[in-house]
């Protein structure tokens, strides 16, 4: 599926095909900004802005989206997983625009979920986790987990492998959530200290994985 960069959040919410194929996008979009911001704000604008606590980037990471970037010189494609470079910083070059988001078809029977804790004033995530879990023959065949709000950029957790081939019992999910924060240099600000933010990220990861698994068929 391809989404034009200037598609508003409202249009994402109103799109039945999108909701059918990627219900997670609609679910997360409902938490972005507020009613007025969703009417005017666009998915491409939000992604290119690269706020390190935005809700949509981790969704793009678990879905393994590809971003199409265009300048006068031509087009290039960059995986979402290589797009974010730092707070409000991306691989976009001067004169280059994000014009399209390409989403691969989700794995068959995949369940997806997002769990987050909002900063009370801005609504941005203190910590948020997006998860995608695909089940085949009664065991987990694929698991993806990504975070926002925790560090300088959204990031994909490398350590979901222990879940593959298991039924995803709570202890295993808990261990993956725990391992995902190993070595992470978490943000520390007036809204959440480092230790609390790491804790919230683990809780969000566990909740997102658990819910994604429950939604997988």
């Amino acid at each position: 599926m391809r989404i034009g960069a200037t598609t508003t959040y409202r249009e994402l919410l109103d799109s039945k095909p999108l909701r059918a194929k990627y219900p997670l996008i609609a679910e997360v979009t409902e938490h972005i900004g507020d009613l007025q911001v969703r009417n005017a704000g666009t998915i491409g604008g939000g992604l290119a802005h690269a706020d390190p606590a935005a809700d949509m980037p981790p969704v793009m990471l678990v879905l393994d989206a590809t971003f199409v970037l265009q300048s006068k010189g031509g087009k290039r494609s960059v995986p979402a997983r290589k797009f974010f470079k730092g707070p409000f910083t991306t691989v976009l070059k001067p004169g280059e625009l994000l014009v399209e988001i390409r989403l691969p078809g989700p794995p068959k029977g995949a369940g997806m979920a997002y769990a987050s804790f909002e900063q009370a004033a801005s609504g941005y995530a203190l910590a948020g986790a997006a998860a995608l879990v695909a089940v085949a023959k009664g065991v987990i065949a694929r698991a993806e987990l990504a975070f926002t709000g925790v560090a300088e950029t959204p990031f994909l957790a490398p350590a979901t492998k222990p879940l593959i081939g298991t039924k995803g019992d709570p202890d295993a999910i808990g261990r993956v959530a725990e391992a995902a924060m190993a070595g992470v240099e978490a943000n520390d600000d007036i809204h959440a200290g480092r230790e609390y933010r790491l804790h919230l990220a683990r809780v969000a990861a566990r909740r997102a994985l658990t819910e994604a698994l429950a939604r997988a068929t």
Partner: peptide, 22 residues
Amino acid sequence: LQERAVYDEDGQLLTGTLMDYA
């Protein structure tokens, strides 16, 4: 539950907008 104006030790107001003051 959620309101607090915060200065850093240099006297800069960290909750200077409605993005940070809840």
